[in-house]
Design a protein around this nucleic acid. Structure first.
Ligand SMILES: [Mn+2]
Ligand SMILES: [Mn+2]
Ligand SMILES: [Zn+2]
Ligand SMILES: [Zn+2]
Lengths: 137, 137
DNA sequence: AAGTTGATGCAACCGGGTTGCAAAGTTATT
DNA sequence: AATAACTTTGCAACCCGGTTGCATCAACTT
C-alpha cells in the first residue's frame, strides 16, 4: 500500500512528504474526480493552501489532470499510467446532474474537430452532462 | 436599430426596459462571447446585480446561451434565430489562449458520444482551445 | 553546527457570482 | 385620478473557489 503510493510519487519525481502521501491515498481511493473543497473535507484538519499546492504540483508532474466540468469548481483525477497529458490522452468527462459527481470516461477519446482553417488547435475540453449509472436505477 | 432590438425582446417575451435594450445592444455588436465582468466594463456606471439578472432573464427566455469556457467566468452569446437551446442547437466553442476571446462555432455541431449504456445524456459542453484567426497572423 | 532549500500553516486577499431589501418604475383596478 | 399590485433597479452585503505573502518548520548540504 504505502510502497505503491511512494512508488507513484517517485516515478513522477515528486518528493513523498506525509501530506502528499495522504492526498495521493485519497485520490487513489476516489472513484470520481474531486475538487479542492471536497478534498479539504476529507481531512479533519487540513490547510487549503497546502492542499492547493499539493494538487498543483501533482498536476505539474502529470500525476493528475484537472477537469473543468462546470460544477463551479475544478475537479482533479489521477492520470492513467501511460498518460503524458498530451492531446491524445484527452478523454471525455461526464458530470451527473443528480449526484454532481464527475467521471473520467477514459476509454472515450474526445472526437477530432475540423476547425476553420484560420484557427489552430491546442487542446479541448468535453464534458457530457446527464444521469450516471448509480443514479439511474 | 432600436426597432430591431425591441423586436427581438418582444419575440422572446422579454419586457423591453431601457437596461435590457442597452444590454442587448452590446450583445448584438459583440462578435465574441462576453462575461458578466466584461459586460460591466462596457458601461460607465452599471450595477452588477442588474446586469446579472438581465443576463439571467435573457438566458431563461433563450435569447442568449452561456458558455463554460474555463476562462474563469461564464460567457454569454446571442442564440441563433432558430435556437431553442435544445441538444441539437449545441455547437462547439473556441477559446483563444492568446487574446482570451471565446467564439461560437455555430456551424460546428458537437459530435455525438456513445456513452456507456448505464449513462444517460442531457447536454454537452465542448470547448476547443488554441489560437484564433485574429491572433494567428 | 550552520546554511540552504523546499514544504507547510495561517491569514489575508481577489474575483465571479448571488441574494436581501428598499426605492423607483410600471401596470392594473377602482 | 388615486390606489393598489407587481416588476425592475440599485446598493450593499455575502458566499465560495482560488491564490498569494510570509513566517515557520523539516530535510538535506556543506
Ligand atoms: Mn479524466
Ligand atoms: Mn455559442
Ligand atoms: Zn449520479
Ligand atoms: Zn485570439
Amino acid at each position: 500500500m504505502k510502497k505503491e503510493i511512494d512508488n507513484k510519487l517517485n516515478l513522477k519525481n515528486i518528493k513523498p512528504t506525509a501530506m502528499r502521501q495522504l492526498v495521493l491515498q485519497v485520490l487513489t481511493e476516489q472513484k470520481t474526480a474531486i475538487s479542492l473543497p471536497e478534498l479539504e473535507q476529507k481531512f479533519e484538519k487540513a490547510d487549503k493552501a497546502t492542499l492547493y499546492r499539493t494538487l498543483k504540483s501533482f498536476q505539474e508532474n502529470k500525476l493528475i489532470h484537472s477537469i473543468e466540468d462546470g460544477s463551479g469548481s475544478l475537479r482533479y483525477a489521477l492520470c492513467q499510467d501511460n498518460c503524458e497529458c498530451d492531446p491524445e490522452d484527452l478523454h471525455v468527462h461526464f458530470l451527473c446532474t443528480n449526484c454532481n459527481q464527475t467521471f473520467c470516461l477514459n476509454d472515450i477519446p474526445v472526437p477530432t474537430i475540423n476547425l476553420p482553417s484560420s484557427f489552430s488547435f491546442e487542446s479541448v475540453n468535453m464534458v457530457v452532462k446527464g444521469i450516471c449509472s448509480n443514479c439511474k436505477k
